[in-house]
Structure formats: C-alpha cells, structure tokens
C-alpha cells in the first residue's frame, strides 16, 4: 500500500503532463484542471491501497474515463445551450481575465530568438496535436509522453496492441508532416 508521501510524489511527477494532455483533448484549461483534480481524487479514494508501480496506468485510465465523462456531459450541455442560446447573450464578452493567468512561471530561456523559435514550434505542435483524431492523440500521448508500453496503452485505451501501433504511427506521421510544413 502506498503512503501519502508516495502518492504526493507520484502526483507531483505527472500533474503537469496530465494537465497539458487533458487540455489538448478538451481544449479548455479550466475544464482540464477540473478533470485532473477529479482524476487525482478518484485515484486517492479508490486506489490508495495499490502499489506505486500501479499508479501510472491506473491514473491514465481514470484520466481517460474522466475525460469521456466530461465529453458526455458537454454533449448534453451543448444541446441545451444551443436550444437556449437565442434567449440570452454571450457571457464570455464580459469575463474579466486574471492577469496572473498570462504570466508564465519562470522560463529558463533568456534568449529572445530561442524563445521565439521554441514558442512557435510548440504552438505548431500543440495545434497539430489538437487537430489529431482523439484516439490517435490518446495513443501518442500514452505511448510516447507517458512512456507506457504497447500492452499498457492498449489496456488503458481498451483496444488491441495492433490498434495502438497504428494510431501511434498515424499520429507521428501527422505531427511530422505539420513540422515539415513549418520548416
């Protein structure tokens, strides 16, 4: 059974990647934060008795399922929003933005040109990732970013190992194409 300290260390090691991964999928930072928080709580409540070695796969599975729940809720909510949208104006225009949200936590790179190149490339990669079909993105992130094995990725995604390889290959080709177009 994992201790609170072990769980904390594990969550700290994956929280940023989990957030970005979720943000690429749902394209909404606030929703992504909620989803990651839900996934963390579910892991803590239901699987705290597991060993730390089991945490990565369990967390990914929980995260994927929480994302699917979010999409289901969004589907229903969008239906009602569409139906009721004609009765009210958009609230987004009146939203105030928190200036803290736009401040990056220390960026180690001081060289403006390096920052610019990296920033442009990352934007390109992020856009390409967002454009990928959901299953390809999921497979790519689990397999390469989370460094899960083919079998583990297949278990999390609920598909065969062959499908994982196919999704990964297509995702990488799409990303490579996007990068080549840029250069």
């Amino acid at each position: 059974m994992a201790t609170a300290k072990e769980l904390s260390d594990f969550l700290e090691s994956i929280e940023r990647r989990a957030f970005k991964q979720t943000a690429y999928a749902v394209r909404d930072d606030h929703a992504a934060l909620d989803i990651v928080q839900d996934a963390m709580m579910k892991l803590a409540i239901k699987y705290a008795d597991k060993t730390t070695a089991e945490f990565p796969m369990l967390f990914q599975r929980i995260l994927q399922n929480t994302m699917r729940d979010y999409w289901r809720r969004q589907k229903v909510r969008n239906l009602w929003t569409t139906l009721l949208s004609s009765f009210g104006g958009s609230a987004e225009n009146g939203d105030e933005r928190d200036p803290l949200e736009t401040i990056d936590v220390e960026d180690g790179s001081d060289e403006p040109s390096a920052q610019l190149v990296r920033s442009q490339t990352i934007q390109l990669v992020e856009r390409a990732l967002e454009k990928l079909p959901a299953r390809q993105r999921e497979a790519f992130i689990l397999r390469y970013w989370e460094e899960l094995g083919v079998a583990e990725t297949a278990a999390v995604m609920g598909c065969s190992g062959g499908s994982v390889k196919t999704h990964c290959s297509r995702a990488v080709h799409s990303l490579a194409k996007a990068l080549k177009n840029k250069v």
Binding site: A2, S8, E12, E15, Q37, I103
Partner: peptide
C-alpha cells in the same frame, strides 16, 4: 514545465486535496 502561476497553484491544491484524502 512552464505553466501559468494560477494553473501550477491549482494543480498543487488538487494534489494536496488528494493526498489529504489518503
């Protein structure tokens, strides 16, 4: 690794909540 301060804080709070739960 370069998230906004608010996001980093929010993730830290979420982690603390989960750890406290355990």
């Amino acid at each position: 690794q370069h998230l906004t301060a608010v996001t980093a804080k929010r993730l830290s709070v979420a982690r603390s909540l989960a750890v406290n739960q355990v």
